[in-house]
């Protein structure tokens, strides 16, 4: 199974979770997602997602001056974003529980798990 396909379905949640811990700018968020294990995630995918979450009203932005380049646009999760994240956490927990059950060891006719 290609994990990148799975990630597409939960990328919004992953980005909100990253921003819940600490505000960040574009590449900073990409880097933190990669460090979290999503090594193949494309930066364009993250930038597009940030723009979509912002347009949906889940993020706020502010500009931080930089000494060695253009000013940085930082993203932060707003209240609506954090509420959405919490709701998605619940959905995710339920989803993982169900999937774990489905993916658990196959049952024998006697009810014992097979080796």
């Amino acid at each position: 199974m290609d994990s990148s396909q799975l990630l597409k379905g939960v990328l919004d949640t992953a980005v909100l979770a990253v921003l819940e811990r600490e505000d960040g700018y574009g590449y900073d968020i990409v880097r933190r997602l990669r460090e979290a294990g999503f090594a193949d995630i494309g930066d364009a995918t993250v930038y597009g997602t940030l723009r979509r979450l912002y347009a949906a009203g889940f993020l706020k932005t502010y500009v931080v001056p930089s000494d060695d380049g253009p000013h940085r646009k930082y993203y932060a999760a707003n209240v609506q974003g954090l509420e959405t994240l919490q709701a998605q956490r619940d959905i995710w927990a339920e989803f993982v529980k169900n999937m774990s059950q489905v993916l658990g060891p196959a049952q024998t006719p006697t009810g014992k798990a097979s080796k």
């Binding site: 700018y25 574009g26 990409v30 930038y47 723009r51 912002y54 380049g69 253009p70 646009k73």
Partner: peptide
């Protein structure tokens, strides 16, 4: 929105 900080991010 999509490209304003792109150059800095790529750097």
């Amino acid at each position: 929105d999509l490209t304003d900080n792109l150059e800095a991010d790529l750097l």
